[in-house]
Amino acid sequence: MNLIQGETVTVIRREVERDELGEPSSEKVTREAVGNVVVAPGSTSDLDSSRPEGVTVSLTLCFPKSYEGELRGCSVEVRGTEYAVVGDPQRHTPENTPGDWNLTAEVTRTDG
């Protein structure tokens, strides 16, 4: 029995295809299900007074060592909601990760 239970999330990659003039012509979207991802709540914060209904929500996702993809520029669907990956998450060194997870990513979304 594991003390920490992961769940399945979906990594979404969007690639913009450009025409001969360099203008966006279409978008290719790929979705990849990744299991055993630990989802931890992050901070929530209200936006300033100009957006009284606005809120920013973040989560911290810990991806398993078996996941070999990169997350820069991606978004991740967690429990039916899409979040943008912040920055360029990097893997921890193997010597410092005795458990099942070695890639930590912060994801965020803004509502309102």
Rank of each mutant, 00 (worst) to 15 (best):
S43L: 11
T10I: 08
V57M: 10
Q5Y: 04
G54D: 08
G54T: 01
P41D: 15
Q90F: 08
K65F: 10
E23W: 09
E17F: 07
S25L: 11
H92S: 13
E53N: 12
E23L: 14
G54R: 06
F63D: 02
E20L: 15
R14E: 12
D46L: 05
V9K: 01
S58P: 00
R13H: 09
R72S: 14
S43I: 05
R14I: 14
D48C: 02
T30W: 05
G22W: 00
L21D: 15
N36L: 11
V57N: 03
E77N: 02
P89Q: 10
A84W: 02
S45E: 06
A33V: 07
A84V: 13
V29H: 00
V16R: 04
D46M: 03
S75A: 15
E17V: 14
G6K: 05
R79A: 15
K65M: 04
P24M: 11
P24S: 06
E27M: 05
R14A: 12
S50N: 12
V34F: 00
V29E: 11
S66G: 08
E68Y: 05
S25H: 08
A84I: 10
I12K: 05
E15D: 09
T81N: 15
P89A: 13
V11W: 10
G6N: 02
E68I: 06
S49G: 02
G80P: 03
Q5M: 14
E70R: 09
G69F: 00
E68K: 12
E68G: 12
P41V: 10
T10D: 07
G87A: 08
E32Y: 00
V34E: 01
V29Y: 00
E7V: 09
S66T: 12
N36P: 03
V57K: 01
S58D: 13
E77Q: 06
Q90G: 02
V55D: 03
C74T: 09
E17I: 06
Q5W: 07
G6D: 04
S50W: 06
S45Q: 01
S25N: 05
R91S: 04
T56M: 02
L61I: 03
S50V: 05
S50T: 12
G35L: 08
V57F: 10
E32G: 00
G22Y: 02
V34N: 02
R72K: 14
K65H: 01
L71H: 02
E17N: 04
V37C: 04
E20Y: 12
G6R: 01
G69S: 04
